[in-house]
Amino acid sequence: MTEENKTKEEEVIAKLDTFDELPDAPPKRRIKLSWVGKISVAVVAFWLVICIIGPSIAPYHEMDMEGDDSFLDAYDNFYLGTDYLGRDTLSRIIYGARNTIGISLASTLLAYLMGITLGILAAVKGGWIDMGISRVNDAILALPTIMLGLIVIAALGSSIAILVGTAAVIYATSVFRIARALGQDIMVQDFVEAAKARGEGVWWIIRAEVLPNAAMPLATDFGLRLVFVVLFISSLSFLGLGVQPPASDWGSMVRENLQGLTYGSYAAIWPAFAIATFTIAINLIVDDISAKSGGSLAKKMV
């Protein structure tokens, strides 16, 4: 055996002795966004900022009928033209961001609060608690969301509180389903079993074992859910059953200005476009985070 081989052999054995085996520790993975993802984050951030400082930067008040006429193209300070009552479209979009995004965000947060609490509870407790909540949940889930919205609004009328509450309850059902499934997956993991065998209480298990492991998947789901809620609220508004005039909201703005389309006015297009930028950006971020190597095997086929 040559000298070189000898040292190599010693190296291998030394490695075995120090590491116990091949060091196969993977490097820590951090979320790295692609440029598409980064742009999307910027878009979402932009709208969130608009929500907060909107009224102070808008050229006009959302209800000011300052324009020369209705359905005008862009001129002077009316960068996006005027709407069917001669109000500044841009200002109404800026004000509307508050309603559309604000109501959606509030509903989604409320839905998460309810969904996660009940979902984790059902997963951890199991038994009849789980059975009971799940059955009711399945029944609500078995209905088209827009139908539920219509039924509730038919009965109660429309106000912001009712919108938030309705959307929250409707979407809490899907959050419940996901939180419960995640919870159940985690609950059967050996590390939870180990905690149970140790004698840990339910709250400790939820706090230290279940929630940290459910956080990331729930965060991505939050994005998707927010998109659904935005679409839901906008659709109701579009039907005239959501945010009530004269307050501005992207969905109702499309409805109000729909007739203008035939005169070639873009007043209905801009708010629709605003919704699209917000929802598409969120979806792109979620896609970027949860991008999987799906189909890598498919590329190997001939």
Binding site: Q189, D190, F191, E193, A194, A197, A208, E209, P212, N213
Partner: peptide, 14 residues
Amino acid sequence: FVFQMADTALNPKQ
């Protein structure tokens, strides 16, 4: 109790 699979027996977030 010592579980079979250390991969799943240790909480990855701790």
